[in-house]
Simulated scan of single mutants.
Amino acid sequence: MTEIPDEAERLLESEPLMAHLATSVDDRPHVAPVWYHYDDGTVEIVTTGRKLGNVRENPRVALSVQKDEDGDPRWAATMLGRARVVDDETESRAARRRINEKYGADPDAYPENALVRIDLGSVAYWTY
């Protein structure tokens, strides 16, 4: 596991911001906004559709998160890692609850979403 600076971890855990997940299959990029949960070098997202297929084909992913205030950037982080789809309904349900609660959604919403766990290899972050 990569060593992530404490300040970057604090920022990633701090509030319900959108992340942008980048996947790639056949040298074609796909970027989509996602809700996320960060904990100790691992990012969890719950999702459906093309992102799941892309991760199954090519586990190398990138994520970016940025905090803005009235259009002015405050901090940003970019992360590279290896993702895997967790085909376990109990784990997916627990992750959906964690993430939905973080973003103020019904904890049991989006039951079709599957868990994707991303082990981070590197994190770059900066504050403005």
Rank of each mutant, 00 (worst) to 15 (best):
His30Gly: 06
His30Cys: 07
Val31Ile: 12
Ala32Glu: 14
Pro33Arg: 07
Val34Gly: 03
Val34Met: 10
Val34Gln: 03
Val34Ser: 02
Trp35Val: 01
Trp35Leu: 09
Trp35Ile: 03
Trp35Gln: 08
His37Gly: 05
Asp39Val: 15
Asp39Ile: 14
Asp39Pro: 13
Asp40Arg: 15
Asp40Lys: 10
Asp40Asn: 15
Thr42Val: 15
Val43Gly: 04
Val46Leu: 00
Val46Ile: 01
Thr47Arg: 06
Thr47Ser: 12
Gly49Leu: 14
Gly49Tyr: 13
Lys51Glu: 00
Lys51Ile: 02
Leu52Ala: 08
Val55Pro: 09
Arg56Tyr: 04
Glu57Asp: 12
Pro59Lys: 07
Arg60Thr: 11
Arg60Leu: 11
Val61Ala: 03
Val61Gln: 05
Leu63Cys: 05
Val65His: 11
Val65Ile: 11
Gln66Pro: 00
Asp68Trp: 13
Glu69Leu: 12
Asp70Lys: 09
Asp70Ala: 08
Asp72Ile: 00
Arg74Met: 14
Arg74His: 11
Trp75Gln: 00
Trp75Ser: 00
Trp75Gly: 02
Trp75Val: 08
Ala76Arg: 08
Ala76Asn: 07
Ala76Gln: 13
Ala77Asn: 01
Ala77Leu: 04
Thr78Asp: 04
Thr78Met: 14
Met79Tyr: 13
Leu80Thr: 12
Gly81His: 08
Arg82Asp: 08
Ala83Trp: 04
Asp88Arg: 14
Glu89Ile: 13
Glu91Trp: 04
Glu91Tyr: 02
Ser92Thr: 11
Ala95Ser: 13
Ala95Pro: 00
Arg96Ala: 03
Arg96Ser: 02
Arg98Met: 04
Arg98Glu: 02
Arg98Ile: 00
Ile99Gln: 10
Ile99Phe: 11
Ile99Asp: 07
Asn100Thr: 09
Asn100His: 04
Glu101Ala: 07
Lys102His: 03
Ala105Cys: 05
Asp106Asn: 13
Asp106Val: 01
Asp108Gln: 03
Tyr110Trp: 13
Tyr110Phe: 15
Tyr110Val: 07
Pro111Leu: 06
Pro111Asn: 06
Asn113Leu: 06
Asn113Trp: 10
Ala114Gln: 09
Ala114Met: 14
Leu115His: 03
Val116Trp: 10
Val116Tyr: 09
Leu120Ile: 12
Gly121Asn: 13
Ser122Lys: 10
Val123Gln: 01
